[in-house]
Design a protein around this nucleic acid. Structure first.
Lengths: 166, 166
DNA sequence: CGACTGAGTTCGGATTCCGAACTAAGGTCC
DNA sequence: GGACCTTAGTTCGGAATCCGAACTCAGTCG
């Protein structure tokens, strides 16, 4: 990308994790994978690519190297809090893939242990105490830079949320 | 990627949208951008790359070409319902970027027009009628294929959700 | 007619990716 | 102590991808 400092959060995020391998590495990290060769075997990724991606993730504070044994000195890669906060994005991607690319196989659901109900992921208004499906808010996820606020004809069904910059 | 039919939804999703340009195109689509040259100018993307990505998005049913005028026959690209369902993933990415990559600038928030409150994105248990922050569920976003369920030491703070395959 | 617009395609050079092979540091077995 | 193993990388050259410039093509405007 030519522009190294875009003013859009999505673009900035993609400069760091906008690479298929990087996202798959993070997926594995969420699954509990931590060591170089575990990543390599699980992903079937070339070593140089893996080393490069891990280094960048560490540089950006998404993973950190933690020594797990001293005698052959060995480090493992763990998610930092910043890295763990990427989970909504990965979960959203997984749910989308489950829904649309799964060939009818049962999707993965997240179960709330305390009550056994399936957790939903969505937008929640703490004041009205209700959720909104993505469909209802999809047309306006952000103010962006669209200058005119041209309305979206596919929008007619939605419930009236709008995005503002804080 | 060598494996053309991975059994992981995230990997399958990334085969379609796991490309920085593709995600930026979708971001623009959510902002209301629809036409070839609008995308090209906004993203400063090379024409062949844009044409290729748009074609793939149409092939996969994420965008559709819609004729918006007959006289010079012109088509525009619109999100399908399948495409619109990607918004949680993009929003999650934006929020993460806002939080961690924003150099102190105010983050974008989503406002619920009906009441003015800031919408949250998170996991919601419809039975308990409450949300959980990403932090509370971050360590176990899916059952994955990790064979042993090795527990995560960084897990101790989380609230007790667990992921199951439906 | 001639210029212009929107939506692409073709082509070649530059960049980036990636797989095979190699390196390195330490441990284990006998 | 030597052979071999494990883990974690690096080097290097070919292959894939990217991207800018130029071209195409259909249709409209003046």
């Amino acid at each position: 990308m030519r522009d190294s400092a875009p003013d859009c959060s999505i673009a900035r995020a993609l400069e760091i994790i906008g690479d298929r391998w990087t996202i798959l590495i993070l997926r594995d990290a969420f699954r509990g994978i931590r060591r170089f060769d575990e990543f390599r075997r699980d992903l079937d990724i070339a070593r140089p690519v893996l080393a490069d991606r891990l280094r960048k993730l560490v540089d950006h504070g998404i993973l950190q190297k933690v020594r797990y044994q001293d005698h052959p000195p060995r480090d493992e890669y763990r998610l930092t809090p910043m890295g763990r906060e990427l989970s909504p994005a990965l979960v959203a991607l997984m749910r989308w893939g489950d829904t649309y690319l799964n060939d009818g196989a049962p999707p993965t659901v997240l179960i709330h242990d305390a009550c056994g109900a399936a957790l939903e992921q969505g937008f929640w208004c703490p004041q009205c105490r209700r959720t909104f499906s993505p469909r209802q808010i999809a047309s306006r996820p952000g103010p962006g830079t669209s200058p005119d606020g041209r309305s979206d004809p596919t929008d007619s069904a939605h419930g009236g949320q709008r995005a503002h910059t804080h």
